[in-house]
Nucleic acid binder design. Sequence first.
DNA 1: CTGTATCCTAGCTGATACTG
DNA 2: CAGTATCAGCTAGGATACAG
Lengths: 127, 127
Amino acid sequence: MRKDTSTNALNEKQIRDSCGMAYSLNIIGGRWKPAILCRLSYGLMRYSELKKSIEGISERMLVAQLKELEKDKVIERLVYPEVPPRVEYKLTALGLTMKPMLAAMSDWGNLHRQQVNAVDEQTKVVY
Amino acid sequence: MRKDTSTNALNEKQIRDSCGMAYSLNIIGGRWKPAILCRLSYGLMRYSELKKSIEGISERMLVAQLKELEKDKVIERLVYPEVPPRVEYKLTALGLTMKPMLAAMSDWGNLHRQQVNAVDEQTKVVY
DNA sequence: CTGTATCCTAGCTGATACTG
DNA sequence: CAGTATCAGCTAGGATACAG
């Protein structure tokens, strides 16, 4: 394995890392999945709770994202055959393994957001 | 702070977490930024090296993503007024603080990808 | 070598209405 | 309550040619 040219040379590990990251993004990326996963990381919630808590999401998108997450086996759908119907969503065992990653992402985001606010806008804090 | 109803109740921390995560995704999300950040996390690279190492990316997208990352202050653009021109990209101090998050994401992705391969396809391993 | 400029497509996303 | 169905718009992304 040659040390190669002047600057940074590609190696297999970097390629794999990039693939892994892209793979994670495929699952947790997009506009709504972070919000869903974050909420479910605190415990199970039912459909209507998710819908109410995630401001601006349409039913169409909520259902679509939940389905994808279910397909990827990170969340689980629990249907109770009652009237009125009740459906709950929760992280699977695999989903729970994402918590460190999710935590790292929200931590960095919150920290950086604060810094940006502090530098650029001084007082503007939006939650 | 009431304990609220039957299942999981929203609280301020969850909202913030979700925002932080979405904020991170705004910066590192998309199809190409993970690949770029992963490579630069190992050290500086010049434009042509990035282009060559990231298979399938067009010049248009590479430039666009690099510009966004620069605007977000996570990478830095170093221009050497030479002939032929040379431009290098590297993580900023802020960009370096992302490394734990990036590592968490690539680790989880690689691990989960292996599991999926192991369960669903036995032998198929694509890098 | 390091980009711009132009045009084009596909799929994500939103709004709304409807159903078991 | 927990979804489906349909239509339409936007924008991220891709192909190609050109420029400093």
